[in-house]
Design a protein around this nucleic acid. Structure first.
Lengths: 170, 170
DNA sequence: ACCTGAACACCGTTCAAGT
DNA sequence: ACCTGAACACCGTTCAAGT
């Protein structure tokens, strides 16, 4: 509100992520973003090619934060799975941008997607096919949960226990 | 192009679905929809409360079509799972509207969601918890596939075989 | 009842113009 | 290099007015 901070790609990414966290990706307009940074919308285009690049900035932040946490947590399926679910529930508006929105691969830091996928493959015991089934199961359940597609009285604790048991036997 | 057809809720639903099938839900604007029906956008509001109700019309069509097919196909997990995947890949733009978009439950035909969920529970052997794991796995893999989040060279046939084997052992 | 044009408060993006 | 106002072609929705 007081001092003009310099606008950089980083500050744009941070402001964009704050808007997404608070109000969801639909509220991330170029005008709202510019206003948060104290400039006008057209000025954003001096720093960023278009709105997709802003989305990519958010995806990059989300992927690396998720990756760091996922790597740091204990190695058992239960620990990996719990982390995945809790990260998603803790970041309900960021999650779909990072794990559902089409990835803007050309605008992502080199190798970032691969390294996160590598962690998933590792957690799934090294098999790419198992990794996809592993990931699909977590992503699917989180997605249904975040979209309110499951009955309100659904016993999610028991459901996730079943997922854990199922993946342990994969 | 020639004769004026009467505009009804049904004709709105059909036109809306056609737009979604051809161009995706983002292209479903009230103006485009009205134009397809030969009227102006404000006139739509004499038939429908808002855009969400149009989405609900599409969800209702999709849910009942999916439900009919899913019920009609053979009873084994392999048959149910194959149908699910093929329905999704056959309706790549409709699928997310029906199975991912928040459901506008108040605007859906009474009991429609429950009856489709009932079919899934039945396919999963009667357990609600297993049904959620079953559904999450199919939905998750389809979602990742539709969004291009899996590597281009991913062996999807083998991946789905693993899903089938995994669910058979649920 | 059903349709219209005009309007309001929004979008993403471009562009000429300023510093 | 960075920012601006004005503009273009869009949105969903409301509303007064017509039939």
């Amino acid at each position: 509100m007081s001092v003009r901070k310099m606008v950089t790609k980083d500050s744009i990414g941070l402001a964009a992520r704050a808007i997404v966290d608070e109000m969801g990706v639909d509220a991330l307009s170029m005008r709202a973003l510019a206003s948060k940074l104290g400039i006008k919308a057209p000025s954003l285009y001096d720093h960023v090619r278009n709105r997709d690049e802003v989305i990519a900035l958010i995806q990059a932040q989300g992927l690396s934060e998720f990756g760091l946490g996922f790597a740091a947590v204990g190695p058992t399926p239960r620990e990996k799975i719990s982390f995945y679910r809790e990260w998603a529930l803790r970041n309900p508006r960021l999650y779909p941008v990072v794990f559902q929105h089409s990835l803007h691969r050309d605008k992502l830091p080199e190798g970032l997607e691969e390294s996160v996928l590598g962690l998933v493959v590792q957690a799934a015991g090294g098999s790419h096919i198992k990794a996809r089934v592993f990931w699909a199961q977590l992503h699917g359940l989180v997605d249904l949960e975040l979209h309110g597609r499951l009955p309100a009285d659904a016993d999610m604790a028991a459901t996730w226990e079943t997922v854990i048991a199922n993946i342990e036997s994969l």
